[in-house]
Design a protein around this nucleic acid. Structure first.
Lengths: 211, 211
DNA sequence: CCAATAACCAAACGAGCGTTTTAATTGTTG
DNA sequence: CAACAATTAAAACGCTCGTTTGGTTATTGG
């Protein structure tokens, strides 16, 4: 078993288990036995559990923000007028695409993102902000441009409303979908839910704007 | 020190600490030393840590759902036509009022609610659904009535979008407010944020409805 | 007033945790 | 092929956790 094998097997197992139960509730013993590697391998390859958590986030956030940057570059270069809906679609499409391309589960990353915001892991928040803060600010800036006439403070709050609706819904997608199926017999999938989310979130962002 | 003292001191400490760090990250030793009571008191009075968690939720959810029910009764009896905005305002006002009345912090409960959804605590989700599911369904039903012409599945998803925006934003209120203050020098408070949230959430719920 | 019951407390138990150590094994390279 | 570095492996360390035990102190009803 080569090094990359062990490292990525650990990351695969950690990703799934963290998303399922959170960080504190997942022990290194569970991770390593799921991955089929020795317990000491985590500390050998990653240094500590904290650094493993960061590595899990880095492995999916870096391709995601890179793809998003490329997508935004492309559309800006083409001189497109970027609408609120268009920006949200780009965000969601890249989120689905850049990860699904690697055969990984997009909603798992939404759960991880939700955990990053919710759980008591100061190091993780600092890591994400320092590493991916620029990407976030660029997207937020373009979104603000698409909402002229909206005062900055209102925009900022609504940005968080939108993030909350997105992260909360998608990270609980399975649970919500199960309730829906039980109560209405209607089944949904992730792309369909995102199609519902785009106009809803856009409407929320645009109230009283664009005068 | 009478029994009620010990019990409520434990609940007070647990409420604050759980909201700050989550359930797993808060030990009974931290709780009992903060409360100034003996370690064994938790297991004596509550039985287990799980039951303590449930008791913390019960103590704020029961007054909240009771007040909400009374408020809705009052408005329905008065023959008021309940608008989306009106329902959201009732929800938030009761959330602020029924808790602030006891001198407790409303956004702490938002953090706890967020944790209930996010953290890996099956027993807690079951407890809340079985105990407060009826209140939830009544509010959702009234909200659906205020949105005629919206198909049930779309309504249900948007209800979760709204819940996500609310819980996510309010449970991270301090963090978001700190960023805002730093970037814009503008400070907000909770009532003001709720005033921003009502029209935004209402707009999201109402897209393409009420035709 | 005094048994009976409830409440409290210090100490310990066993289990699980992240991490470290030491040794064996594998892979690489001159 | 020998020498060296990188990796894997087994075992243990020190610590914290939730819970339990056994004994002491308060409270209370007859």
């Amino acid at each position: 078993m080569s090094q990359t094998d062990t490292v990525s097997r650990i990351l695969d197992a950690a990703e799934v288990l963290f998303a399922e139960r959170g960080f504190t509730e997942t022990s290194l013993r569970t991770i390593t036995s799921t991955a089929g590697v020795n317990l000491a391998a985590v500390n050998y390859h990653f240094g500590s559990k904290k650094e493993l958590i960061q590595a899990v986030f880095e492995r999916f956030l870096t391709p995601f923000t890179d793809s998003l940057a490329a997508e935004l570059d492309r559309r800006v270069a083409a001189g497109e007028r970027l609408s609120v809906e268009g920006l949200l679609e780009s965000l969601y499409r890249v989120g689905m695409g850049s990860l699904a391309a690697e055969g990984r589960d997009p909603q798992r990353f939404m759960r991880l993102l939700g955990l990053a915001y919710t759980q008591y892991q100061g190091h993780l928040r600092r890591f994400i902000v320092s590493r991916y803060g620029d990407s976030y600010r660029r997207f937020a800036g373009l979104l603000a441009q698409a909402l002229p006439g909206l005062d900055p403070v209102t925009f900022y709050w609504r940005l968080y409303f939108m993030l909350g609706a997105t992260i909360f819904t998608l990270s609980s997608f399975d649970a919500i979908e199960a309730i829906l199926r039980e109560d209405f017999g209607a089944q949904s999938n992730l792309p369909e839910t995102l199609e519902r989310l785009v106009p809803a979130a856009a409407a929320m962002l645009k109230v009283d704007a664009e005068r």
